[in-house]
């Protein structure tokens, strides 16, 4: 690769990180709860984007391209992870019955609660919901995941209902108690995440 094309590539890459870097971190967070492994996943996503970027010919939007790679890396991470890790601690976090008033007072508590609740969703629901929360249209979500808009609409509707249930149950019980159970009872996106 010549110096000028490498510079152009680096500039493009930097723009992607500037515009989507925080979203990529959130995608990583939707697949991995443990901070060190989440950071590893984020770096894997960044690496995959860097390696795929020279072959990107603009067939889809940059946003679609970036989210496809991020979710695909997330799936690889999930499939290679030891079954003993990850899911259980996420479920434990969501289903922790102990109220914690000090934590309740923290500024990021609502965000953390939302993220824990999203992480508790089953994978199909979690994927569409996280993409919707990033502001992607149903058409774009379909392009990222390779499913029709109808499928996206159905999954999103169920995911929202499940999430509403989880968050509602959390508020009702003074914490996140029962959220895992709520998720488990829902028809779609219902199982507490990553039961495989």
């Amino acid at each position: 690769m010549s110096g000028s094309s490498l510079d152009a590539l680096e500039e493009r890459y930097d723009r992607i990180l500037r515009e989507h870097g925080s979203a990529l971190r959130r995608v990583a967070a939707s697949y991995e709860r443990e901070p060190a492994r989440r950071e590893d996943l984020f770096q894997e996503i960044c690496l995959a984007i860097w390696r795929a970027l020279p072959h990107f010919r603009g067939e889809a939007s940059v946003r679609t391209f970036v989210f496809r790679i991020a979710h695909n890396r997330g799936l690889t991470h999930r499939s290679r992870r030891s079954p003993a890790f990850g899911d259980l601690d996420a479920a434990a976090q969501v289903a922790d019955p102990r109220p914690d008033p000090e934590r309740e007072a923290l500024a990021g508590q609502r965000r953390d609660r939302l993220r824990a609740a999203v992480l508790a969703l089953a994978l199909p629901a979690r994927q569409v919901l996280t993409l919707a929360l990033e502001g992607l249209s149903q058409k774009e979500i379909g392009e990222v995941l390779g499913v029709s808009e109808n499928v996206v609409a159905v999954r999103l509707s169920r995911a929202r209902a499940t999430l509403r249930g989880i968050l509602g149950a959390g508020r009702g019980e003074g914490g996140m108690a029962g959220e895992g159970r709520e998720a488990a009872g829902s028809p779609a996106g219902g199982r507490t995440h990553d039961e495989d």
Binding site: R18, R26, C46, L114, L133
Partner: peptide, 20 residues
Amino acid sequence: EWRDNPAPAAEARAAILRHV
């Protein structure tokens, strides 16, 4: 609530680029 985290700063982006 979901998008309540900042974009990586220029320094962090440069570090990511070096890493990749």
